[in-house]
Write a protein that binds this DNA or RNA. Structure first.
Lengths: 231, 231
DNA sequence: ACCATCTTTTGATATATGTCAATTTTTATT
DNA sequence: AATAAAAATTGACATATATCAAAAGATGGT
């Protein structure tokens, strides 16, 4: 968790975090001035649910998970994030509290921008506010899909959804290193880790996926999608 | 579904739909001019998932449900709405599609405001945009609670949550007419209606609630909250 | 390279929840 | 009021999923 000497500016980050496009040059400078970058080791917590929001976070390298800490020490992973993701959280204009935790899955770096600079831009820059609104709405739509996946599909469908999600949204390949643990996979699909493991094995036996060590390869996307659709 | 001659203006509705407070007088006039009111009979659909968003809806009388149409003809109710609720939906700035359906539970009326007027105000009135953002964030937080309730609590906890929700948020009394059907209660808690009925009976036998016909009275809030907390 | 620790895997078993079918109750219609 | 249609209830049973415990495999630090 040491500060990073790395001198990239917010302007250069534009390519990655799209809503920054809507900031004016002055705002970008202000963001850049207030900004600091921090390194995290795998497993370390970046945002902790229940604490005050002081900064928004632009994730710059590594892999992290955004999760709600629920009952009986069970977590529900909302999303896996990769470089380019901007994480504020729904508490921003409401109670200024984090309603989820974020922790590094692999060694990671993240930039932090003072929440007041962010709020200033929301207030002064309508385009930016609208872009934020749009972003949050997209998130909302994804949550709807997650609701259906988690409450109406059985385990095969949920694991299929998770495998497809990781393939399409995170690793952009149908062959990837799982990186996330079995427990994480379980927390992503709202089941016990033992069940997640069993379904994974079932898919392997059915030649839907190949799996050795942590390397997963999707062999039969159609069957996977059918599981996702049938529920 | 006939047009309504009722001549209340948007200004008068202010009391109910709070984010309208941030509109200027001119905007309110524009909203009022584009607006029309419609009556719905119980069971009729107000917004249909998968159709284009042309208006935002201000619910003015009755009771309605907002629900996602999922797999195998199963619905998931996101919220029950009462007069004063403003319903746009997460598709507004994204794909202009409804991602949920809304239907009247009892005979109801609703006002519709042209989506373009709404978008115009978002673009021209930062305070209004921020208020909308805040509203959506609050919704987001509620969805997080719903995620935990639906994925980590067992049936007793979920039914307890639903009973408390109806008591606190909708009927504002610990004794109310259920109004919603058993199927709706099941769709609100993501279980089969038979299971919902059984848990309701269990609560009745344990003297946690009183229940005759559709009149429900909470007898033991503490036990209900314990079920909600234990999961 | 070794030991301790943590993660993954597997099997046996318990349990929560869904499904199906039959019955009763309520609501709507003529 | 009589009938049909819809909703609620109940019981028996099937099954999806969790839990527990033990074993195997991987990982990290000294």
């Amino acid at each position: 968790m040491t500060q990073n000497g790395d001198n990239c500016s917010c302007q250069e980050c534009l390519r990655k975090t799209s809503i920054f496009e809507y900031l004016t040059d002055e705002e970008l400078v202000a963001f850049n001035d207030s900004r600091y970058q921090t390194k995290y080791k795998a497993g370390e917590i970046i945002f902790k649910q229940g604490t005050a929001i002081t900064h928004i976070m632009s994730f710059t390298s590594g892999l992290a998970k955004v999760y709600i800490e629920g009952y009986n020490n069970r977590d529900l992973i909302l999303q896996i994030i990769k470089p380019g993701s901007l994480i504020g959280g729904p508490g921003v204009l409401v109670d200024n509290m984090h309603h989820f935790s974020v922790s590094a899955i692999t060694d990671s770096t993240a930039c932090f921008i003072d929440i007041n600079e962010y709020k200033k831009s929301l207030n002064n820059n309508t385009e930016f506010a609208i872009a934020s609104l749009k972003e949050i709405n997209s998130q909302h739509i994804e949550n709807f899909n997650k609701f259906i996946s988690l409450t109406q599909k059985q385990m095969q469908g949920r694991i299929a959804d998770a495998i497809i999600y990781l393939s399409d949204e995170i690793f952009n390949s149908n062959s990837y290193d799982m990186t996330i643990s079995r427990q994480d996979l379980a927390d992503l699909t709202a089941m016990s880790k033992e069940s997640a493991i069993r379904i994974l094995k079932e898919f392997k036996d059915d030649k839907i996926i190949q799996l050795n060590h942590n390397k997963i390869e999707i062999l039969n996307v159609d069957k996977l999608r059918r599981f996702s659709e049938i529920g």
